[in-house]
Design a protein around this nucleic acid. Structure first.
Lengths: 251, 251
DNA sequence: CGCCCGTTTGAGATCGTTCAAGCCAGGTGG
DNA sequence: CCACCTGGCTTGAACGATCTCAAACGGGCG
């Protein structure tokens, strides 16, 4: 692997203080001076290329990571070698919480695109959190939100028809892009169809067919990785179509 | 609702110090004196009857709860009124982590059987944790483990055939009963078929048929709520039968 | 004793998968 | 600059696991 010396990054100063994502990330809810302390322990490894890993399942947990730019997928490999994608992570989101129990990573994380991350060495982060309740609480909040997200995903996977899953996925991405100041109507999918399918618990053919159907219905315009949301309300209706499964209805 | 005064509980002193479940619960990893401090804030509400709630989705989070005896289910109701069961909680397990982000409960929790819980008032718990890093870390660990569990469930729901789901469910319960010093081979299902089905993302008819098939295959003996595991290895094999779904195989 | 609810069992319908072929864009080499 | 090749994506047709609908069963409780 030749060392790429054409681009040099030292000039780019990434600081939580002036990061547009601070309100979505770990600094949220911290006082200025506390953000300063947090910032002193953040490291900025050189950007990852597509497919490179942030950490691998089984690695000792040495740090938590925040996505700074690009996109990351987290996934596990089951005993029989099947990959299951657990989530896609956009700028401002933290990775690694599932390793805090055992201090070993329980899933792998790899870049979907050229991606830069902020590294938060765990020992030092923990030490700081022990002295800053506000930081400790913020970590707690973020973990809690991950649990809530996972619960939402459980609902998607157990209850929803394929079109509802895809609609939910697009709306979720759209909302997250919007939060980050990007267009919520038009965006780029950094993951292949296979990964979307895996994440949603359906096949890539079904994803493809569903995209087409949505396009024919005028809900979206999709061209390979480029997606445009034409009828958000329509998607929201579609997202509510359950499979049924005789789930107990509470009226 | 008549007040039941036949049984009186004051004589029953529930203390973390001599609770058989301490090693699975919040006191795990705390020093003796710290357990003592924790114990001073624990409250013991009178037992819940089947169907009674520990908390409701939308309630302000005032406490975390540990199951002391019995069993609890947590579930959400989606906008269109469909119930989705997120988990079953056995003695020693904590509830409420999903409310730490917003300070409102994001799911409901109800008793599957007569159940007693230990109530941990949140303000006081947080305050104590701010001064006891070991408690804070233990909370962190438990939340992390919940995330890991949810991830395992995502895998079950997106990848597995109905028989594999049921087998996984039985093995999971079996293991948890074993950890608690109960029989891992023979146990009681405190939840109806409908709830098992809902939790596993299949229909109650499929659960019923799968139980029958497993019984015919000599893997289990099942009689209504009573289950006996006859061939654990066989169940483990069954639990690995995926639906396929063209998931990327990593060999 | 009889009702009711949870459960079992059966037969047909359906959604999504499977398998298979073709397409398109981007990169490579002539 | 173009032909070719590759990998990701699309499209089609048939199959099958699981759902749906429906009916019967049985244990527990009033």
């Amino acid at each position: 692997m030749p060392t790429n010396r054409i681009i040099d990054f030292p000039a780019i100063k990434v600081a939580c203080q002036n990061c547009r994502l601070a309100s979505l990330c770990l600094p949220a809810g911290l006082d200025g001076p506390d953000v300063d302390k947090l910032e002193h322990l953040v490291r900025h490894p050189s950007p990852l290329r597509r497919g490179e890993h942030v950490f691998l399942m089984g690695d000792r947990l040495t740090a938590l990571y925040a996505v700074h730019s690009g996109a990351i997928k987290t996934y596990t490999i089951s005993v029989d070698g099947v990959e299951k994608i657990l989530g896609f992570h956009l700028p401002g989101e933290l990775l690694g919480f599932d390793g805090l129990g055992t201090l070993y990573h329980r899933c792998s994380a790899s870049a979907l695109d050229t991606t830069s991350v902020c590294k938060l060495p765990f020992d030092r982060l923990q030490e700081l959190a022990d002295h800053l309740p506000s930081l400790s609480h913020q970590l707690q909040r973020l973990m809690s939100e991950e649990i809530v997200q996972d619960h939402a995903m459980l609902m998607v996977l157990s209850d929803m028809s394929a079109p509802a899953r895809v609609a939910t996925f697009l709306l979720n991405l759209s909302g997250r892009f919007g939060q980050r100041g990007l267009s919520a109507q038009e965006f780029h999918l950094s993951m292949p169809r296979q990964d979307i399918a895996n994440y949603l618990g359906i096949t890539l053919e079904t994803v493809s067919r569903t995209f087409r159907q949505m396009q024919d219905d005028g809900l979206i315009a999709v061209e390979r990785r480029h997606v445009q949301i034409l009828d958000q309300a329509g998607l929201e209706v579609l997202a509510r179509v359950r499979t049924g499964k005789s789930s107990s209805q509470v009226t």
